[in-house]
Amino acid sequence: MKIAGLKSVENAHDESVWAAAWVPATESRPALLLTGSLDETVKLWRPDELALERTNAGHFLGVVSVAAHPSGVIAASASIDSFVRVFDVDTNATIATLEAPPSEVWQMQFDPKGTTLAVAGGGSASIKLWDTATWELIATLSIPRPEQPKPSEKGNKKFVLSVAWSPDGRRLACGSMDGTISIFDVARAKFLHHLEGHFMPVRSLVFSPVEPRLLFSASDDAHVHMYDSEGKSLVGSMSGHASWVLSVDVSPDGAALATGSSDRTVRLWDLSMRAAVQTMSNHSDQVWGVAFRPMAGAGVRAGGRLASVSDDKSISLYDYS
């Protein structure tokens, strides 16, 4: 299990790159890397050369997250001004512009079947679910407020930052500023329970593709936690980063974890050992996003790709094997 640098693009954007996602391959083209930046653009890159496919404008204030539909045809990008732009990957035609004021927009993810887009709603302490056919807001999953909120406490502790679908699409997890992770039953639009253990913002969440209950969380406390999302238990805790863990992703084979951190490194974790096996220090600033390319054929690890994006304006591509 290792990653090896394939290609890096310096100054891929004019400003910090904050978001990355892979657009799955379609019949006409291979998978593309989608990146979003403070420079208000979204760019598409073709691996392995990381050739710039297209630059999408249309956002004001920095782009904080990008997400791709499992079909690979459409994608969404969101910025600090709380607009979500849904567009056709190949033509860049705007399909929809979503907003649900006063809710902000942070991380987004399409459900595995591609029928719903889940959007972390920031200060609204909720996840917004959008129908991908009609682009109507179909549900708002709110985190129940604590029984007796202290009047002295300013700000909203349940500020939702991150969101993740379980591989079967039945559960949604969201991470908040106060470190709690909330699990929802999507079908019933019902809050199930909290997962505790973090006390600092959880900026990234991902379910294991092979063990549907297993959830990984990245937090500002420099730890990655492994939870049994159903059993409400903390399975493991992994430390090693020197600063905030900003992003986490699981490899398609479910054996490895990649994390990006404010300590400027990308780490590869062997889940069987629960230990970091590799540390990449090629970025010179915070690594805001890491993303494994979804596997075309299941079961083969060869040809795996990992991308990382950073405040240093660069993007990097690695071979994962």
């Binding site: 329970h193 505790e196 253990g197 059993g231 409400k232 238990s233 903390l234 629960r274």
Partner: peptide, 17 residues
């Protein structure tokens, strides 16, 4: 050396690890 598996805790315990 990580030979002893140490981290198992249920939800109530994980805040008091």
């Amino acid at each position: 050396e990580g030979k002893v598996n140490v981290s198992t805790a249920d939800a109530t315990a994980c805040t008091r690890l």
